[in-house]
Amino acid sequence: MTVSVKLNTDSTIWTDFKEGRDYALSYIYNQHVDFLFFYGKKMTADEELILDVIHDVFCYLIEKKESLGEPQNIRMYLLKSFRRKLLLEIEKANKQESNKVTVQEPNIVFSIEEEIIKSEEHSERELSIKEGLKKLNSKQREALYYKFNCGFDYELICDLMSVSKSSARQLVSRGIAVVKSHVQEQGFHLLFFLKRNCF
């Protein structure tokens, strides 16, 4: 007999959640709470506010579970609702503090941009990738984040960002182009190095 632990697809989890099975709620919470929290941090520094909004998102789901639709991707579904609510709250807070800063999209910083260059060997390549990344605007960054960190395909990305599918792809392609040339260079170095060693 084979024991296989098949972890569930979003759709079965969702159905179970709608039927009120407790495991499904805790599963959804644990699978996505970190993601939502860190997404929130890209929009605001107010962590209490972020936690409150996550709470509201889940309460809304619990309250309305019978009438909710069938999302293709739970993470994206949560994110959409979370982002909308968070933006409203940020706006509210801004009004109170007569703060004019308006946030529309998350402030995405890639890890490579945060890292301090340690070894000289890598510094040149990393620097040039960094230089390239600097050219990316916030929309492009957002699309790249969804594509390469969140597991969202273009259909979900264009839905999230309210752009057409082709422009979602374009936003991503631009970023790829920026990095591709630098990666290629490194590939040549490596090849050269290997050849030398063969002799």
Binding site: L25, S26, D34, L51, V109, Q186
Partner: peptide
């Protein structure tokens, strides 16, 4: 390598706050 160049540090929410938030949500449920 291209894909990894776009990696964004995610991190996790600390356990205390995660549990606290869960308790609130669970109670509501």
């Amino acid at each position: 390598k291209i894909i990894r160049a776009f990696k964004v540090n995610q991190g996790t929410l600390d356990q205390e706050r995660k549990n606290k938030l869960w308790t609130r949500i669970d109670a509501y449920n």
